[in-house]
């Protein structure tokens, strides 16, 4: 075996080693990014769930009635507004 051949073998081994390191580094970077994205996804989900709950609370009939009263509005069923006795007044 000549020195040149020996050097070539060493060089190839170094190249393969570097390639492995670079691949591993890329994989690690990607895994880290996935991990971070999961974290972000959780944070966004948390906000989404909270907003969804807030909206459900605001859409609730009792909450609508309460806010209407605070604003000085009367929530009246449509038939009652037309003069029919849908407000339940008995004969």
């Amino acid at each position: 075996m000549t020195v040149t051949r020996g050097m070539l073998v060493l060089f190839l081994m170094v190249v393969i080693g570097v390639a492995i390191v670079v691949t591993r580094e890329e994989s690690a970077r990607a895994a880290n990014r996935i991990h971070k994205l999961h974290g972000e996804q959780t944070a966004i989900e948390q906000r989404l769930w909270k907003l969804e709950t807030d909206m459900a609370r605001l859409r609730g009939p009792e909450e609508i009635r309460r806010r209407a009263m605070l604003m000085g509005l009367r929530v009246v069923p449509p038939a009652a507004r037309t003069g029919a006795a849908a407000d339940g007044r008995a004969h």
């Binding site: 069923p77 449509p78 038939a79 009652a80 003069g83 029919a84 006795a85 849908a86 407000d87 339940g88």
Partner: peptide, 19 residues
């Protein structure tokens, strides 16, 4: 009576005998 009145109005059921 109040439940029926409010529920029927909410469900937009036409009255039997409107004024």
């Amino acid at each position: 009576r109040r439940i029926l009145a409010r529920t029927l109005a909410y469900l937009q059921i036409p009255p039997d005998d409107p004024p």
